[in-house]
Design a protein around this nucleic acid. Sequence first.
RNA 1: CGGGAGAUGUCAGAGUGGUCGAAUGUGCCGGUCUUGAAAACCGGUGAGGGUAAUACCUCCGGGAGUUCGAAUCUCCCUCUCCCGGCCA
Length: 414
Amino acid sequence: MIDLKYLQKNFDEASTKLLKKGVDTQTLETLKELFSTLKEANAEFEEAKAEQNKMSKLFGTYMREKKDVGELKVQIDAKKEQLVGLQSTARQAEEALQNVALAMPNFPDESVPNGADEDDNIELRKVLEPRSFDFEPKEHWALAEINGWIDFERGVKLAKSRFAVLRGDAARMERALINFFLDVNRKRGFEEVCVPFINNAKMLQGTGQLPKFEDDLFKVEGEDLYLIPTAEVPLTNLYNDEILTTKELPILLTGYTPCFRKEAGSAGRDTRGMIRQHQFDKVEMVAIVEPSKSEEIFEMMVENASDILTQLGLPHRVVELCGGDLGFSAASTIDLEVWLPGQDKYREISSISNTRDFQARRAKIRYKDGKKNVLVHTLNGSALAVGRTLVAIMENYQNEDGSITIPEVLKKYM
RNA sequence: CGGGAGAUGUCAGAGUGGUCGAAUGUGCCGGUCUUGAAAACCGGUGAGGGUAAUACCUCCGGGAGUUCGAAUCUCCCUCUCCCGGCCA
């Protein structure tokens, strides 16, 4: 959630910032008004409540002194009646504010480039030269068929479209990649955790998936629970509603989880192959840090993910997202895109974001800075998306006969 | 899923209608003492909102109710623990 006090005091600056992310000033104006309405309503309610509290205390005194309370009771009753109205006004104001505030995306950082969509993203650098083929490189689904690695039909049979089954060496490689990623992250100082793959609504709200993106989530019927769309949710919310000490920070976490997404808005996109599935494996990094450290940790996380790709010998590029392409919670994001020779394209394989205090405010994650409680900064990033890495290995390590060479670093894992 | 017990501050644990945001112990921070540390002693120490700062408001798992007044009484929900069933 954005800082409403900041919005109120620096409205013009705030609207300039959010314009970058495609939020119109009208919505912001509404939010600002709802905020001041709430403050007024609260003030009025609290004042009346204070009077009532005072009278109730007096009532007790009268009782003890055996004075007549008839007159006082009449006054209290009148005040109570007034309070009912004031309270419901205040509650309505609160609710109205929450509805808008929770749907408001994060401010982008100053440094985030302007732009409407991914075409305006900025390539920062390329890492590793794509290899040249002396034959026509195949796409991964063709290779999957030759090697019997991916059973798309039976995945659909078991669940529905956008589900697949990995078989044989592909299944083993999936597992090998997870282990490899976790090991690398652990060596960087991330604590490995294994978390529930189903989280409650409060947690999903904490990281920003709810209430706005409910349609993208698989919900457990009849329960206040959702399948996680990313490990960012459980890892970040591990510290939901907690006050940490400076000694505990920074907290660096890594974990493997499957991720579940409805892909509601992407009908028809990447229907072929394993790029866009309803369920996929991912190893995630999450950092919970003091605000002054978030820049530095962010760089480290990008470096770490890029390094994993390099170790795997996978050519990739580092891309800075423009304002229009930033996710809801992100203040800044760097994507890593891996080269897919079969598709002749770079495709996203990791996304690393700094959400600043946006998620911290929603999830109430603070730390004690001397006497004061201060919101932490939270960061998250994939290291890496496992299924897409498998795809990248297939396409980059394919041989003319369709066979696939195992990357050197994975050999000890398989 | 059935039977029983419970949910209070970092933790432990009092509190059964007002003067309780809450005893006491513990932890933590600061100080005295000490060559240093420990011990002992003294002081401070929950969260959110509000304010220039005070006032003031809210919070004793969550919600509704009774009452002039609720941590305390009633109802519902959730969760935890113990016993039984089922089960990886």
